[in-house]
């Protein structure tokens, strides 16, 4: 029975959008926490930790996210661990995000000049004071643009979770298209919704940068 693309469908899509956003938020929090660990392991003065972090980053960045999703969704049950789509998607997106956040934050930290550390030292600031009052505030400002840039990628990449049956915006659009045979209006609407989220994020990032004197 073919029906028209209606207001009800739009409501269904907006409801599914909550899961897109929810998944992105979970991946941001999980990936952020893991990413801090990755960044620290990457810079500590202990070679095996650096190698571990580099290996992890290369493995995650060098394999497709879809493959990682499948590994968790189809792979874990082979070991007797049952996971639903939510858990598989949350885990794999968090791990995916952590590799990128780790590198972004390491780069931001290291892009603060050695001279800033020295200037702090020359004023008698101890290591912790130099880190928290001189270097981290600058690194944080530098990291705003690349962090939000990656968040935009992350939001769009949540659509891959549709392939393991997780009903977010893209999966909802597929379902509606199957019922209405109106792919153009459905997917255009979906694209517009993704755009609204991503564009807002970019705008937010630019506002933040201006407020924090990023170039300064």
């Amino acid at each position: 029975m073919i029906r028209e693309f209606s207001l009800n469908d739009l409501v269904f899509m907006l409801e599914a959008l909550r899961w897109t956003v929810g998944l992105a938020i979970i991946a941001t929090i999980g990936g952020g926490a893991l990413g801090i660990i990755v960044a620290v392991l990457r810079v500590v003065a202990f070679k095996p930790a650096n190698w571990l972090a580099i290996g992890y980053i290369n493995l995650v960045q060098g394999t497709p996210l879809l493959g990682q999703l499948f590994v968790f969704f189809f792979g874990l049950p082979l070991f007797g661990i049952q996971v639903d789509a939510w858990v598989a998607a949350s885990l794999s997106l968090s791990i995916y995000a952590s590799a990128f956040f780790g590198e972004i934050w390491r780069g931001s930290l290291q892009s603060v000049s050695q001279r800033q550390w020295e200037a702090g030292a020359a004023l008698g600031l101890n290591y912790w004071q130099r880190l928290t009052h001189v270097v981290l505030p600058q690194a944080l400002r530098i990291s705003i643009a690349p962090t939000v840039g990656f968040l935009v990628q992350l939001v769009k990449n949540t659509s891959l979770a549709a392939l393991i049956g997780f009903i977010e915006l893209t999966r909802a659009s597929q379902i509606i298209t199957a019922a209405t045979f109106a792919p153009l209006p459905v997917y255009t609407t979906a694209a517009a919704l993704y755009f609204i989220i991503c564009f807002s994020l970019s705008q937010f990032s630019q506002r933040l940068e201006r407020r924090f004197h990023v170039t300064r």
């Binding site: 001279r115 800033q116 020295e118 200037a119 030292a121 020359a122 004023l123 008698g124 600031l125 101890n126 001189v134 505030p137 600058q138 400002r141 924090f212 004197h213 300064r216």
Partner: peptide
């Protein structure tokens, strides 16, 4: 050294003000 640096101030060639 932090106590020493309070007694011996230093100014650098590249100013090194805190940009933020």
């Amino acid at each position: 050294l932090n106590a020493l640096r309070q007694r011996a101030g230093m100014v650098f060639q590249s100013y090194n003000l805190f940009p933020h």
